[in-house]
Design a protein around this nucleic acid. Sequence first.
DNA 1: CAGATGACGATCA
DNA 2: CTGATCGCCATCT
Length: 87
Amino acid sequence: MNSFAEKVRAVVRKIPKGKTMTYGAVAKAAGRTGAARAVGTIMSHNDDTTVPCHRVVRSDGKRSGYNGLMGVSREAILAKERAELAA
DNA sequence: CAGATGACGATCA
DNA sequence: CTGATCGCCATCT
């Protein structure tokens, strides 16, 4: 729990359900503003499956991973969580 | 240490 | 608005 990656994972794990964070925001929360790229690289390795990478999106809100990775589209997951909140 | 890589971000054409 | 390029940062070889 020393590497930047560990911090990033912790932050992403704290993302509230139905919400989404940009890589820049996660990097900032991790203590390294502007390190969106580094965050993406770390996420790509995805060492922790407990980290909801699908809640992490770009500034554009496109691409993020988990895109059909486990048979479910990222949008489907977010939509499901949002519906859960609305319910 | 230096070079290469990558789920990004912003700016330029 | 879309596509392409440069820049930023962390990790790996």
